[in-house]
Design a protein around this nucleic acid. Structure first.
Length: 770
RNA sequence: GCCGCGGUGGCGGAAUGGUAUACGCGACGGACUCAAAAUCCGUUUCUCGCAAGGGAUUGAGGGUUCGAGUCCCUCCCGCGGCACCA
């Protein structure tokens, strides 16, 4: 007998579906438990073997919780807006929706073939107008609250994708998606003021059960720092246009070093540069500013290069001592952080020192004063700044949610009325974005030209679409009430399910999706639409699965493992158990074909336990069973899935060695096996005459009396070195233990005289110090 | 550069300060078989030894402790994140 996956897998998947066993109930008296895995982007390549790793892990918890009597919500859906579908559309001329739908069907079939206990009745799809109607509605809530604003700004521009990118989508100066170095481009963009929530996004982390490294990354990304703003009044020098009443405001975390200031530096893009520059310096300044503009972020960000800068010809007064210091511009000062201007203290700051040395500026050692004294003396103001920047929310692409705003000559930007939502994506003939950076929607006159909802006059629709982080910022709310067409979710449904008890996803989303969705939820909370200010009570993350050769799986390397093939050859449970067994859940691990086979052998062996059923079993089997129940229960809670599987294997090995197991014990074992290998467990259950599903049984509790052994093996050490082992009664008194230990022939060789000291750790060891 | 996480057999990895190397893979030997596959039994950190047993060993070096993979210090290496944030 072996695991006949080809008949078993489909059989149980069909039965689960027909019996609706995994569907969550919105009106259940049971205690709720909401488990969430990040919904996938349904790519054309199909499911990656990395997906089932986290899905299986959370599925195991979901199944255990149901058996513990909880009302479990464990949903799945599709984050389906995105560039691959759009690129496909550009290439083939087909609608990206068609491609997306095909991919979704593939993904669903693949997920169902692995027996995940998702509640398929709650499936959501971000590209469904019935879904994105609410994404648009929420955007309008931001707009109405004054948090969505349009501004002309230098944005990160990917010249390959022809699209603006959010700060978070730029990785080391390159486009996150295609790796092209990002350029700066001045564009009018919709922004969402996430910085207004910076403080709360930071301080509310404290009460959350997130992995420490996740909290840390978010903290650093938000980047709060305490300091002061200090005004340096401008001095009019010969030829400079600065007026006396103007001043340059700097931000510093070290006002205490104010007496060491030898110059002030503006970022090249600082708005005051043009007006303060002297005639003699104008040419040099213009040239410098132009050279900086042509640089990419990577070039500018290279802090190993020699510092560059130009004197503006202007001077300011140090308010602490009324000394005049020169004003420079340099690209090591960033325009978007603080005030875009710094007071340079080469004595205390490495960067200022490097610049001083490069430009032959003086370095002075002045006395330090206290933070408070410096702020008071200079008329400065205490100030907190953040590295976090507002969220660039416009994309010049087709395949996204249209931004539901209309521009009217008379009324400016006007929201599309709620009853007219959704603003549906129109069909276009060409999906290619334009070179001048406009969405293909801009070419559809029937879409663009509309009436102003306020005055009825001629108006034009916004043609930018939303980033694909929009739909994923609130999908977890929709799962609570996915078919509601009056609201995005009812208050009751939200109250019943939120917050999410465990949310698992990739580390790569820590400063993107995770931060955006926390912010989005907080905003909805402030507007009174959701019941909790934080969406996720607990956040966990999984490690990646690499190819067998240790490299990333990639088509170009030809080392991609297709999960369909694994399921087809070895069965769904083999894939599930293997992915749990391969290594610690949070760590990156390489795929191993032989490892898969090893797990398959284990499942075959497990099934063969049915042939060993007897009326009595060795007490070791019973004890091992209860140890296994205890170990598995603890390991699942602690995300120790690999050691849980090892324990399952140990149990099966003991049964094999002893050759007999009772029906009762086997049934109990199947209850611990079912979260990991649900097809095998249910099949064995049925063969034993069980009715219904194993999932309908209660989660077993270990019999504490079975966890203790009557006798224990103890190590005997002499001076910390192992010299023998003894077997004594578990509750043996120390005196007898020591006597037994000394009686050991080998130990006696080393312990001739009376030992100086004897350490006895009951059940573990005896150590003689001689 | 800064922050975080790691470094354990041939490989993936296990180990509340208490017998390091569980579990799995691979390898080797054996049983079954005409044979192979599958399955089963055994061996498998290195090393000396016929054996009993000894010695070494968790990246390197120190320290604390009766006892350190685990705690502390100084390094080396790998991975991830941030990166001129004033």
């Amino acid at each position: 007998m072996s695991y006949d996956h080809q008949s078993i897998d489909g059989k149980w998947q069909k039965r689960w579906m027909e019996a609706h066993v995994f569907e969550a109930k919105n009106d259940s008296p049971k205690e709720k438990f909401y488990l969430l895995v990040e919904f996938p982007y349904p790519s054309g390549a199909g499911l990656h073997v990395g997906h089932p790793r986290s899905y299986t892990a959370i599925d195991i918890i979901a199944r255990k919780r149901r058996m513990e009597g909880k009302n479990v919500l464990f949903p799945m859906g599709w984050d389906a807006f995105g560039l691959p579908a759009e690129n496909y559309a550009i290439k083939t001329g087909n609608h990206p929706g068609t491609f997306t739908q095909t991919n979704i069907d593939t993904f669903r079939r693949q997920l169902q073939s692995m027996g995940f206990s998702f509640d398929w009745s709650r499936e959501v799809n971000t590209t469904d107008p019935a879904y994105y109607k609410w994404t648009q509605w929420m955007f309008l809530e931001f707009f109405k609250a004054g948090l969505a604003y349009k501004t002309e700004m230098a944005i990160n521009w990917c010249p390959k994708d022809l699209c603006g990118l959010a700060n978070e989508e730029v990785i080391a100066g390159k486009c996150e998606r295609c790796g092209t170095p990002v350029e700066k481009k001045l564009k009018s963009q919709w922004m969402i003021a996430i910085t207004k929530y910076a403080d709360r996004l930071l301080s509310d982390l404290e009460g959350l059960n997130y992995l420490p490294k996740i909290k840390k990354q978010q903290e650093e990304w938000i980047g709060r720092s305490e300091g002061a703003e200090i005004d340096f009044p401008l001095l009019t020098k010969e030829g400079a246009k600065g007026r006396l009443e103007d001043s340059i405001t700097v931000f510093t975390t070290r006002p205490d070093t104010i007496f060491g200031v030898t110059y002030v530096v503006l970022a090249p893009e600082h708005p005051l540069v043009a007006s303060i520059v002297s005639d003699e310096q104008r040419a040099a300044v213009d040239e410098y500013v132009a050279s900086i503009k042509s640089k990419t972020d990577i070039e500018r960000g290279d802090d190993t290069k020699e510092k560059t800068g130009v004197f503006t010809g202007a001077f300011v007064t140090n308010p602490a001592n009324n000394e005049a210091v020169p004003v420079w511009i340099a690209d090591y000062v960033l325009g978007h952080y603080g005030t875009g201007a710094v007071m340079a203290v080469p004595q205390h700051d490495e960067r200022d020192r490097a610049f001083s040395e490069a430009m032959n500026l003086p370095i002075v050692d002045r006395p330090l004063v206290s933070f408070e004294e410096a702020v008071a003396k200079t008329g400065g103001r205490q100030k907190t700044t953040y590295k976090l920047r507002d969220w660039v929310f416009s994309r010049q692409r087709y395949w996204g949610e249209p931004i539901p705003l209309v521009h009217c000559e008379k009324d400016g930007w006007v929201a599309v009325p709620t009853e007219e939502l959704p603003v549906v994506l129109p069909n276009v003939e060409n999906y290619q974005p334009t070179e001048n950076g406009e969405s293909p929607l801009a070419n559809i006159e029937s879409f663009v030209n509309t009436k102003c909802p306020q005055c009825g006059g001629a108006a034009k629709r916004e043609t930018d679409t939303m980033p694909n982080w929009a739909g994923s910022s609130w999908y977890f709310l929709r799962y609570t009430d996915p078919h509601n067409d009056k609201e995005f979710a009812s208050k009751e449904a939200l109250k019943q399910w939120m917050p999410i008890d465990i949310y698992n996803g990739g580390m790569e989303h820590t400063t993107l999706h995770l931060l955006y969705s926390r912010f989005w939820n907080k905003f909805l909370f402030d507007r009174g639409y959701v019941p909790t200010s934080e969406p996720y009570a607990r956040r966990h993350s999984h490690g990646m699965i690499n190819a067998e050769d240790g490299r990333k799986m990639s088509k170009s390397w030809g080392n991609v493992v297709n999960p369909d093939e694994v399921v087809g050859q070895h069965g769904a449970d083999t894939l599930r158990v293997y992915e749990m067994f391969m290594g610690p859940f949070e760590e990156m691990v390489p795929w191993s074909t032989n490892g898969v086979i090893g797990v398959r052998r284990f499942l075959d062996k497990a099934i063969r336990m049915s042939e060993k059923i007897a009326d009595v079993e060795d007490v070791e089997v019973t004890k091992m069973l209860h140890k296994t129940i205890a170990k598995i229960s603890g390991d699942i809670e602690g995300f120790g899935f690999n050691t849980a599987v090892a324990q399952l294997m140990m149990f099966v090995n003991v049964v094999q060695e002893k050759g007999a197991i009772t029906k009762e014990s086997l049934r109990l074992f199947l209850r611990t096996l079912v979260p990991f290998a649900p097809h095998v467990a249910n099949e064995m259950w049925e063969q034993l005459g069980g009715t219904g599903f194993v999932e309908e049984q209660e989660w077993p509790v270990a019999d504490a009396s079975m966890l203790k052994d009557d006798t224990v093996e103890m190590a005997v050490q002499v001076n910390g070195k192992l010299r023998g082992t003894i077997v004594v009664a578990a509750d043996e008194v120390e005196e007898i233990i020591v006597k037994t230990a000394r009686a050991d022939e080998n130990v006696a060789k080393y312990v001739v005289d009376e030992p100086k000291k004897v350490i006895v750790v009951k059940g573990k060891l005896v150590n003689f110090v001689v």
